[in-house]
Each structure stands twice: as structure tokens, then as C-alpha cells.
């Protein structure tokens, strides 16, 4: 059954590439504006030969990882505080709710002024995007732990700490993990915004440079890289969450 699923995914990708090829080769669009898969492959090889493909990947993954770790740790911690403590809920929820609709790209100019054009501003932009998503998921998950679980643990005489770690956290874990999964995707989404300025390496920077030199083939390499990385990360998170919150699997 699993082999059949893999075959379906592979077939879907092959069809997508063939459609892309057909459109690019049809002559309706200039090949300079819509390159063929072969041209994109050659551009990827060129970037590899120039030593840029993996150095960009390394730079971007490093920034995304640092931003994710900072944002996720803060998100889970603050989510625990706002969901379980009235004082923090009253103090932080209004301001965090106001921040949530502000997109990461709008934060970039502020980040540059506060943290400069080095990696600090990039970590800030990525962790900002991750933090808000993880905070909301954690807060929501902790707030919606079924009351019956709490009553049952208390009637059995569980102390507060035990109740927190063995009842509340496991009940909220599926929400937290799904928040982390969304946060990981957002880390990549905000990466490109973060690398728009002050970067001299990374996938976002290379996309921008390719645009400046009208290199659509190189732009497509960056887009494909982002797509593959995002999908791989999502798959990894899904597999991990199956083990971490196995009690929630249906």
C-alpha cells in the first residue's frame, strides 16, 4: 500500500515536470522568462560548480534553524505561561494578538534598525514568525485540556506538578507539535524576507541576485530548493510527531 502511495507521489511530480516542460517548450513564453526544466538543471549545476549551491543552502538552513529554535522555545514557554497564569494571560494576550496579523516581511525594516544588517536581524524576523504561531498553538492546546482529565487526576490525588507534566502537557502536546510543524514551515517562508537585505549568501539572497541579473533559471533553482526543503521538513515533522504524540494517532 505504501509503495503504491510513493508511486502516486512520484507520478504526480513527473506529470508536473512534464507540464512545465511542455509549457516552456511551447514557444508561447520566452525561455528567458520561463525556463525549461533542463535549463534549470543546468543553472543548478552552474551554481554547484561555482561553489554557491551548498554554501547558500548551509547559510539559509543555519539561519532558519537558529530562528526556529529561538522562536519555538519562546513560543512554548510563553504559551505555557499565558494559558495557565491569569496575570500573564491579561498582560500578554492583547499585545500578542495585535502582533499576530503583522507579517514577517513588515518587520524587516524594524529588525534592520534594531539589529543591523548582520545575522541578528534575520534571526529576529524568523523567530518572530515562528514564536507567534507556536505561542498560539501552545496557548490554545493548554487552554482546551478537557476538564474531566483535570478532575480525574485531582480526585486520584495527583500533586500539582504531576498533574501538569502527566496530564496537562500530554493532552496539549498534539496542539504544540502541530504549532511547531507550522512554525517550521513559517521559518522557511520568513527566511526569504529575512535574506532580502544584509545577506550576501543564502537562498533568499540568491533569488534576489538572480532577479537583478534576469537569471530566471537561477531563480527557479532557488524556488525548487525552497520547495524541496519545506516538503522534506514537513515530512520529517510529521514522522516525528507520530512518535512524539502517538496517543493522538487515529
Amino acid at each position: 500500500m505504501q509503495i503504491l502511495d510513493h508511486a502516486k507521489v512520484a507520478l504526480s511530480l513527473v506529470v508536473a515536470v512534464l507540464v512545465w516542460w511542455a509549457v516552456a517548450a511551447s514557444g508561447f513564453v520566452s525561455p528567458d522568462l520561463f525556463p525549461t526544466p533542463i535549463a534549470v538543471w543546468h543553472a543548478a549545476v552552474e551554481l554547484y560548480d561555482d561553489g554557491l549551491l551548498f554554501s547558500d543552502l548551509r547559510a539559509s538552513l543555519g539561519r532558519a534553524a537558529v530562528g526556529f529554535v529561538i522562536g519555538a522555545s519562546l513560543g512554548v514557554s510563553v504559551g505555557l505561561l499565558t494559558s495557565r497564569t491569569r496575570f500573564f494571560r491579561l498582560a500578554l494576550n492583547p499585545i500578542l494578538s495585535l502582533c499576530r496579523p503583522i507579517p514577517a516581511i513588515a518587520i524587516v525594516p524594524v529588525a534592520i534598525v534594531w539589529f543591523g544588517i548582520g545575522d541578528g536581524s534575520k534571526y529576529f524576523v524568523i523567530s518572530y514568525a515562528v514564536f507567534l504561531t507556536v505561542w498560539l498553538a501552545t496557548h490554545h492546546g493548554m487552554e482546551h485540556v478537557p476538564e474531566t482529565y483535570i478532575r480525574a487526576s485531582r480526585s486520584l490525588g495527583a500533586p500539582m506538578m504531576r498533574e501538569f507534566f502527566q496530564v496537562v502537557i500530554p493532552a496539549a502536546a498534539p496542539h504544540i507539535v502541530s504549532g511547531l510543524r507550522m512554525g517550521a514551515a513559517l521559518a522557511f517562508l520568513s527566511l526569504v524576507a529575512a535574506e532580502l537585505t544584509g545577506a550576501s549568501s543564502g537562498i533568499g539572497y540568491r533569488l534576489q541576485e538572480a532577479r537583478q541579473y534576469l537569471r530566471m533559471d537561477r531563480m527557479f533553482v532557488g524556488l525548487v530548493e525552497l520547495g524541496i526543503l519545506g516538503a522534506a521538513l514537513d515530512f520529517a515533522f510529521l514522522s516525528l510527531s507520530r512518535h512524539l504524540v502517538h496517543w493522538e494517532q487515529t
Partner: peptide, 19 residues
Amino acid sequence: EVVNAAPADTVPALVRGDI
């Protein structure tokens, strides 16, 4: 060392000493 900065970010970067 030539560093990339978006047009609007060059002046703040110069003021801050990033460049």
C-alpha cells in the same frame, strides 16, 4: 569587504556601524 544592503537600509547600517 563589500556587503549587500537594500537601498533603504544602507543609511541605518552606516549610522549603526554595521558598515
